[in-house]
Amino acid sequence: MTESDEDWALRSEGVVLERERQRFARVPDLRLERGRAVALTGVSGSGKTTALLALAAIRRPSEGTVIVHGCDIWSLPSSERDRFRGQHIGLVFQSFHLVDAVSVLENLKLASLYAGHRPDRERARMLMDRLGILDLANRRADRLSQGQAQRVAVARALINGPAVVLADEPTSALDDANAAAMIGLLRDAVERQGAALVVTTHDRRVLDAMDFVLPMGLP
């Protein structure tokens, strides 16, 4: 880790993505300080979701480096990379990907547990309260509406106070009121917790709340 790495919550350089052994997208170089938010935009198929997976240490890019919280995430062995992701990266998937078999509260607890943290019930309640899902705490995840599941996915991403929050279309299933709450919460996470936020979106409501908007590049 270099001294300059510590200044950035997220830094990526020269990240190129491949699909079926063909280069198809280049992620704009990112230097995000804590508290900053950026939106990645681009047409469908431009590689926005794949870019987030590369930044989240889930899909290996063909080229480039990704440094999160001072750590070159793609240099870590697989199991350490998983644990690092759990501790320092909050992820909101486009399809939410909650653990359907357990309750909303248990989804949040699992995220803490597997990140190696002791589940913080108070923090979970605070997040659920802010997202308007406190009354759903004991409801099984497969019995939630799309909008409710999306808010649970955001709460789960924030439960461990991550250095970086990566959100794929976080307001796609929300009405205006809930989208505003979601944006508020994500901005709050950025500002109060000193996290960096990267979202992919077409939603003008989200774009307006970001510090920068960067288009996906061609390789």
Binding site: S79, R83, L91, A101
Partner: peptide
């Protein structure tokens, strides 16, 4: 498989 893969994303170790 999906649930177990998801737990990996959340940080679970293979032995877990």
């Amino acid at each position: 498989t999906r649930d177990l893969a998801l737990l990996r994303v959340l940080g679970a170790h293979p032995y877990e």
